[in-house]
Design a protein around this nucleic acid. Structure first.
Lengths: 200, 200
DNA sequence: CCAACCTTCACGAACGATCGTTAAGTTAGG
DNA sequence: CCTAACTTAACGATCGTTCGTGAAGGTTGG
């Protein structure tokens, strides 16, 4: 269990970074929002950079866990797996908009080694999409001639949710997820395989 | 014609804002990059905010002009018009990545009236996509049951180009544009109309 | 048992650096 | 002469960071 102060700090930093951007956010405001003094923050994190790093790490952990959990509940079928990834990603972007926007926008504010490590994790995360799409193309279930561009389009569609979706809007998140799954399958040109007996 | 100093200033600000983000960028570095002193900048722009505002305005002007130009060259057919918008947007994002990223990411750094005015322009720009998609759905050429989500997916696909595309990569911009047009038509479920004689 | 000691968590004050901005003055061209 | 273009110098504010201090709580050695 994380100390309460640390949790409040991460939450405050997340909101400040999401609202103003890393460069414009002040660690004084962050500490104040977390209900502690400026120097108390330095007891938990060694500086502004490490605060951002912790935020990106925590957000990525949560996202990877959410997708992995969703993947654990479906079959090996590429269509099922792609659907699960799209659904989990869309849900994550909608439910954790501030978290997601920091993951997506503040990468450039990381310096040196931390950037390199984060870029590696992000590259791995795209495999959540790449693997089922490539598998579906290989098996003939997905007919798209452009798997790379289709993948990027699917990812962009999901990620954009963090920027425009509002919970109090006219569309429920569950409904949006269904539509995103359908659009993703459209993008890869999904054609359900006839089963073995029907083909003979 | 804009004075040379002003052009250099905008170019320098564009690069700095794109690389570091508005909050982390220093107007001293911008002025130096533009080859002039700090206060010379204040001769052209009244501050950092106005620099960003000018950048967003100029970028939006260029984008709108590019799309309007493309629309002027095609028929009234919804498929043609959507294709033209997708092609022009993808090209703009690829050819003006720094410009586009500022348009897409630094909106939140605008304050007060300027933000309001920019948000209005941005809303108008989405009509470039909305109009042909809604027209195609109305005419029956586009079969998608989710025109709003399809539109957002198309826009997200195009916008993402500014973040990942590199001119020295394996894919030419022209080839990418072709694939984006195809993917966009896939997203709206485009089915070419049989012509009048063939239908009877 | 108790005193000495350590770690954890928190504070206010101050550091030097850099920030955006302004003022006053200089130069060049019509 | 005037204005546009540009300079150096400095302003106060705020930035991220560091320092020294101390209260609380547990651990250890005599």
């Amino acid at each position: 269990m994380r100390p309460a102060g640390q949790t409040a700090l991460l939450e405050a930093a997340r909101q400040e970074f999401a609202e103003r951007g890393f460069g414009s956010a002040s660690i004084r405001d962050i500490a104040q929002r977390a209900g502690m003094s400026l120097s108390a923050m330095y007891h938990y994190y060694s500086g502004k950079q490490e605060l951002l790093h912790a935020l990106l790490d925590e957000g990525m952990d949560r996202y990877v866990a959410a997708v992995a959990d969703a993947l654990g509940r479906v079959s090996e079928s590429p269509a099922d797996r792609l659907s699960a990834v799209v659904a989990a990603t869309t849900r994550f972007r909608g439910e954790h908009a501030a978290r997601s926007n920091i993951l997506l926008l503040e990468e450039r504010s990381l310096d040196g080694d931390r950037l390199e490590r984060y870029a590696r994790r992000q590259a791995e995360a795209t495999n959540f999409f790449r693997d089922p799409i490539d598998a579906g193309v290989a098996s003939g279930e997905f007919l798209t001639p452009y798997p790379d561009e289709a993948r990027r389009a699917v990812i962009a569609m999901c990620n954009a949710v963090a920027q425009w979706y509002r919970e109090d809007g006219p569309l429920s998140l569950d409904a949006l997820i269904d539509r995103h799954v359908e659009l993703a399958l459209t993008l890869v040109d999904y054609r359900p395989q006839r089963n073995w007996s029907a083909r003979r």
